[in-house]
Amino acid sequence: MTAHDHHDHDHDHHHDEASDLSETELRVRALQTILIEKGYADPAALDAIVETYETKIGPHIGARIVARAWTDPAFRQALLTDASKAAAPFGHQGETGDHLVAVENTADRHNVVVCTLCSCYPWDVLGLPPVWYKSFAYRSRVVKEPRAVLTEFGVALPDQTQIHVWDSTAEVRYMVLPARPPGTEGWTEEQLMKLVTRDSMIGTGMPASPEGAGA
């Protein structure tokens, strides 16, 4: 049994082609399938363990990136211009040949990201995707009726705010740069970071309210 590199994707696929699993992911799935088939493991129980560690997976650099963009206009510009490059010093490695794109929420536009079904989700930036995010129902509905789905998530947007849905591909991954919450003037990056939730970087939530946090 050889130890395989976990970043050994074959990047010979193109846009809209087949799904992509790394050698390690293939082995993990093989083992999981066998344990479930033979009755040694219950898929729900395995998921429950992984969900327990949801906040302990990945370096969670996204919150820092967002807080930096809120406090440093030059960094914000660099992030929106080339997020892969801007995020690199924070530890975002990315797979060879993919690009991280940051999309900014404004008064006129709200962004939502879909697709985490293979390895096309920048979890090193955003943390582990929520379970619902992987469901086919979410994916298809958010494309067709984003406003209704967002309302279900408790995100009520003014009618004039346009909603843009970004579908990750093997080459391009997205993160949302949420708007800085009002009432946080003078806050430090460390304080602001605590307001940046995973869902706010996917677009299915807003940053936490400044009351009761930070300060």
Partner: peptide, 11 residues
């Protein structure tokens, strides 16, 4: 407790 760099590690 345990921390993981990637989802498969937690799996």
């Amino acid at each position: 407790g345990p921390v993981f760099r990637e989802p498969w590690e937690a799996q």
